[in-house]
Design a protein around this nucleic acid. Structure first.
Ligand SMILES: [Mn+2]
Ligand SMILES: [Mn+2]
Ligand SMILES: [Zn+2]
Ligand SMILES: [Zn+2]
Lengths: 134, 134
DNA sequence: CAAAAATTGCAAACGACTTGCAAAATATAC
DNA sequence: GTATATTTTGCAAGTCGTTTGCAATTTTTG
C-alpha cells in the first residue's frame, strides 16, 4: 500500500458516510494529485476494499461515492439541504429484486438504490423557523 | 410546442424504453443542435411531461434517461451486454421506503432504483455459444 | 546495484452537459 | 400588417467530474 492509497482507504474507513472523490481531493490537495486519488479509488475498488455508487444531488451534481466494502451492503439517504447521508440499514430489496428478475429471466449482477429529501435535523430547523413569531 | 420539443417528446413517447439525450442527439443531429435537445428535455421535464433518472453503465458511462411522465412510476433493468432496458413494472418499494424513512424521521421526496446485469436474450446467446461443440 | 515494473504529478483530453450571445422564429401591440 | 417585445435556436465556448499520455520518481526484482 502506497501512501496515497493508505490515505484514501483510511479516510473512507473512518468516515460514517459515503465519501466522494471531490471530498478526498480537497482533503489531500497539498499531498496528492486528483489523478492519484482517482487511481487509488479505482485500485481499491478493483481489489475489493471499496464499494461505490453514483448519486445525483442538485447542489453537487452527479458524483461517485465510496464506502468500505462489507459483506452485506447498505443503502443511503441523501439530504438535499445539508448534504449528509443517513444510513438506511442493510439492503432489504434482495427478495423483491430476485422476484422481479426471475419473472423476467434477468441475471441481476448489481442494483442501485438511494433516496433523497430532507433529513430529520433539517426538517426540524424548517419547522422551528416557520413557527417562530415575528 | 416548437418542432424540436415535439420531436423529442414524440420520440420518447414512442420508445418502449428510457431514452438518453445522446440517443436523441444522434437521431436529430441534422435537425437540432445538442443544446436544443437538452433545453427541450429540461423544458418538458419542468412542464411535467417527462421523468428522468441517471444510470451508469460501463460502456455508455453515466447518462440521464428520459421516460414519459405517468401517474405511477416504474423501475428498469439495464443489460450490460445489449444495453436495452427491461421494464421491472410499477414501483414496489413505496412501503419499504416509507418504513425506512419514518423510522429515521426522513422526508423522502424521491428515490432511485435500477438493476443491471444480463438480460434473458443475452444470457441465452451465451449459453448457446458455450454449449456449441468445436 | 542495475534493470524492470509500478506509481506518481502534471498537463491535456474526455464526455455529458450548460451557457452567453446574436440570429431567427414566434407572439403581442398598436 | 408592420413595429415591438418575447421566446427559441444554433453555434462556440465553458464547466465539471473524471481519465489518460508521458516523463520523472519510487518500488520491486534479479
Ligand atoms: Mn449533495
Ligand atoms: Mn448502456
Ligand atoms: Zn439535512
Ligand atoms: Zn441484453
Amino acid at each position: 500500500m502506497t501512501k496515497a492509497r493508505t490515505h484514501v482507504l483510511e479516510t473512507i474507513a473512518q468516515a460514517k458516510e459515503p465519501v466522494s472523490a471531490r471530498q478526498l481531493c480537497g482533503k489531500f490537495q497539498h499531498e496528492h494529485d486528483p489523478a492519484t486519488i482517482y487511481r487509488a479509488l479505482h485500485y481499491l475498488e478493483e481489489k475489493g476494499r471499496l464499494d461505490s455508487f453514483i448519486l445525483h444531488c442538485s447542489e453537487h451534481g452527479t458524483e461517485r461515492y465510496y464506502v468500505l466494502h462489507v459483506a452485506e451492503h447498505r443503502h443511503w439517504f441523501h439530504c438535499e439541504r445539508c448534504h449528509r447521508f443517513t444510513d438506511l440499514g442493510l439492503c432489504q430489496f434482495d427478495a423483491l429484486v430476485a422476484k422481479m428478475s426471475a419473472d423476467r429471466g434477468l441475471t441481476v449482477t448489481s442494483h442501485t438504490f438511494y433516496a433523497t429529501g430532507v433529513c430529520s435535523e433539517c426538517r426540524a430547523k424548517t419547522k422551528v423557523s416557520v413557527k417562530t413569531p415575528g
